[in-house]
């Protein structure tokens, strides 16, 4: 649920109020296969020793457990751009948040539809 995601996120980010911007969450609008939905997380950051992305968290409102994965990065990554594949049991909002090296938090979300399919032009 949205409440579970908010609680989990607050715990992961130390309760810092998230801002919008800097983080991009790439997901299909409609899932082809709810068991394996490609997802990409990109955070706008120079990834230098004094200005980098420390953490990226991915959460799902409609799954049994809200936390999906948490990534911990170092400046040696060069670029904050991570892809994986996730499960989505039903149509729901997916939430992503980034914690920067200065402690600021940025978040975004995207609705993914899981449909029974069929029909077409």
């Amino acid at each position: 649920t949205p409440e579970e995601v908010a609680t989990a996120l607050a715990k992961l980010t130390g309760g810092v109020t998230p801002q919008s911007g800097k983080i991009t969450l790439k997901l299909p609008e409609i899932a082809e296969n709810g068991a394996s939905v490609p997802v990409t997380l990109i955070v706008d950051s120079p990834m230098t020793a004094d200005n980098y992305v420390k953490q990226i968290h991915l959460l799902a409102e409609g799954n049994p457990t809200p936390e999906v994965v948490s990534f911990y990065l170092t400046p040696a990554a060069g670029k904050a751009d991570i892809s994986t594949r996730m499960r989505l049991g039903q149509t729901q909002k997916v939430v992503a948040a980034a914690v920067m090296s200065d402690g600021s938090v940025y978040s975004t979300s995207k609705e993914v539809k899981v449909t029974i399919g069929g029909c077409g032009g």
Binding site: E67, F71, Y72, I82
Partner: peptide
């Protein structure tokens, strides 16, 4: 040196 670490839950495919 660590580049990346991931803590995964059951929603990873």
């Amino acid at each position: 040196n660590e580049i990346l670490r991931a803590d995964m839950n059951t929603s990873i495919s």
